[in-house]
Lab assay of single mutants.
Amino acid sequence: MPEGSASLQLAVGDRVVYPNQGVCRVSAIDVKEVAGQKLTFVTMRREEDGAVVMVPEGKVLAIGVRKVASAE
Rank of each mutant, 00 (worst) to 15 (best):
K38G: 03
V52A: 06
A6F: 10
Y18Q: 02
A62W: 07
R15D: 03
K67M: 10
V53G: 02
Q21C: 06
A71L: 10
R25V: 14
V26K: 00
L10K: 00
E48M: 10
D14S: 02
M44L: 12
Y18I: 13
A62L: 10
L10H: 01
Y18T: 04
Q21F: 15
R15V: 10
A51P: 02
A51E: 09
V23Q: 03
V65E: 04
V60R: 02
G64V: 07
A35Y: 09
K32F: 14
D49S: 04
K59C: 15
M54Y: 10
K67C: 15
V65W: 04
T40Y: 07
K32P: 01
E47G: 01
P19K: 06
A6I: 11
E72I: 15
Q21E: 08
K59N: 10
V55Y: 06
P2F: 09
G22P: 02
I29F: 07
F41C: 00
S5W: 08
V65F: 07
A28K: 08
P2G: 11
L61H: 12
A62Y: 06
E33D: 10
V42T: 00
K59G: 06
T40R: 14
G64E: 06
K38M: 12
V34F: 09
R15F: 11
A62I: 11
P19T: 04
S27M: 13
V68S: 05
M44S: 00
N20P: 10
A71M: 10
P19C: 00
M44I: 04
P19F: 06
Q9D: 11
E72H: 13
T43N: 02
Q9S: 09
L10T: 01
T40E: 02
L61C: 04
A62P: 04
M44N: 00
M1N: 13
E72C: 15
I29R: 02
M44Y: 02
K32C: 03
Y18F: 14
N20S: 12
V26T: 01
L10V: 14
R15E: 05
V31S: 07
R25S: 07
N20E: 09
I63D: 15
V53Q: 04
P56I: 06
Y18N: 02
L39E: 09
N20M: 09
L39K: 07
A28T: 05
E57W: 14
P19D: 07
S5V: 12
A62E: 15
V68G: 06
D30Y: 13
L61M: 09
K67T: 06
A35T: 05
E57T: 06
A35W: 08
V55H: 04
K59P: 04
E48D: 10
A35R: 10
P2C: 04
L61R: 09
F41Q: 02
E33M: 11
K59D: 15
R66S: 12
P19R: 06
L39I: 15
E33T: 10
E33I: 13
T40W: 09
A62N: 06
A28Q: 08
G50I: 03
G36N: 05
G4F: 08
E48W: 14
G36T: 03
E3M: 11
G58I: 10
I63W: 08
S5D: 10
A71G: 13
V34D: 05
Q37S: 08
G50N: 08
A71C: 15
A6S: 13
G64P: 05
F41G: 00
D14G: 00
P19Q: 06
S70M: 11
R25F: 09
V65S: 03
L39V: 15
L10C: 00
I63M: 14
A35D: 14
K67L: 15
R25P: 00
G36R: 03
V17Y: 15
A6P: 12
E3W: 05
K67Q: 08
V55G: 03
P19S: 07
A11M: 13
A11V: 13
I29S: 00
A28L: 06
K32I: 15
P19L: 07
D49Q: 01
E47P: 01
S27I: 14
Y18K: 03
Y18S: 03
V65T: 05
L8I: 09
A69Q: 13
K38Q: 10
V55R: 02
A69M: 10
S70K: 11
P56F: 07
E47V: 06
S7M: 11
V52Y: 12
A51D: 05
V53Y: 15
V42S: 00
P56S: 07
E72G: 11
G36P: 00
E72A: 11
N20T: 12
R46S: 06
G22Y: 05
C24Y: 15
A71R: 06
V55C: 03
R45I: 15
A6V: 13
R66Y: 15
Q9C: 03
S7A: 12
G50V: 02
C24D: 00
R15W: 14
P56A: 07
R46H: 05
Q37C: 01
V65D: 04
V12E: 02
E33G: 04
V60F: 14
A35P: 02
V55I: 13
V16S: 00
E33A: 05
V68D: 07
S5R: 03
E72S: 11
S7Y: 10
R15C: 00
A62D: 10
P19H: 06
S70A: 12
Q21N: 12
V68Y: 09
R25M: 12
E57G: 09
V60M: 15
E3I: 11
K32D: 03
E33H: 08
V42C: 00
M1E: 12
A11D: 05
A11W: 06
P56Q: 07
A28H: 08
S70N: 11
I63R: 04
G58F: 10
D49N: 07
V65M: 08
E72R: 06
M1F: 11
G50D: 08
G22C: 03
R45D: 03
A6W: 09
L61Q: 10
L8Y: 08
G36H: 04
E48H: 12
A6M: 10
V31W: 06
M54L: 08
G13M: 01
G58R: 12
S27A: 11
V26A: 01
R66M: 14
Q37M: 12
Q21P: 01
Y18A: 05
L61D: 08
K59M: 15
V23S: 03
R15Q: 06
V52E: 11
A6C: 04
K67N: 06
K32H: 13
P2Y: 10
Q9E: 10
V68P: 11
A35F: 09
A62F: 06
K32E: 06
C24T: 00
R15N: 04
G4N: 10
A28R: 09
T40K: 11
T43G: 01
V65K: 03
T43R: 04
D30M: 10
G64N: 05
Y18M: 13
R25C: 00
E47F: 04
V65R: 02
A11I: 10
V60T: 04
G58E: 15
Q21T: 07
V42I: 14
M54H: 07
V53L: 15
S5K: 08
D14L: 04
S5H: 12
V23P: 04
V68A: 07
T40C: 00
Q9H: 11
R15Y: 14
T43V: 14
V65H: 04
V53N: 02
E48S: 14
V55E: 06
E48F: 13
V42F: 10
G4K: 09
S5M: 10
M54C: 03
R25N: 04
A69I: 14
G22S: 05
E57N: 05
A62H: 07
L61E: 09
S7C: 04
A11R: 12
C24M: 14
L39D: 04
E72T: 12
L8C: 02
D14F: 02
E3S: 11
D49G: 04
V23K: 03
I29E: 00
V12P: 04
R25K: 09
R25T: 11
S27V: 14
F41V: 10
M1Q: 12
D49C: 01
V42E: 00
V60W: 11
V31C: 01
A28Y: 06
G50L: 03
V31I: 10
A6L: 10
P2Q: 11
R45W: 11
V55W: 05
A51N: 07
V26G: 01
R46F: 09
L61F: 08
K67V: 15
R46P: 02
V34E: 06
E57K: 07
Q37Y: 08
G13F: 02
R66C: 14
M54S: 12
A6E: 12
E57S: 15
A71K: 10
T40L: 08
Y18C: 06
G50Y: 03
G64L: 09
V31T: 12
V16E: 01
E57R: 05
K67R: 07
A51L: 11
I63S: 13
S27P: 00
L8S: 08
T40V: 13
E57I: 14
Y18G: 04
K59V: 15
V60E: 03
V53K: 03
D30N: 10
S7I: 13
K38N: 08
V17R: 06
V42G: 00
V23E: 05
V17W: 15
E3L: 09
R46W: 03
T43K: 05
E47H: 03
A28D: 06
V53C: 03
Q37F: 08
G58A: 14
S70C: 15
E48G: 08
I29P: 00
K67W: 10
E72Y: 09
D30V: 13
G58K: 13
A69P: 11
G13L: 04
V12T: 03
A11C: 04
K38I: 09
S27E: 15
V42K: 00
D49K: 02
K38V: 09
Q9K: 14
A11H: 11
L61A: 13
G50E: 04
S5T: 11
P19M: 06
V26C: 00
N20W: 05
G4S: 13
R66T: 15
E47R: 01
R45E: 13
Q37P: 01
L8D: 09
Q9M: 09
F41H: 03
A35K: 12
A69N: 14
V34Q: 05
T43C: 01
N20Q: 08
S7L: 11
M44C: 03
I63F: 12
V52G: 03
L39M: 13
G4A: 13
K67I: 15
A51G: 11
M54T: 12
V34S: 06
G4L: 11
V12W: 06
T40P: 02
G36C: 00
K59F: 12
M44K: 00
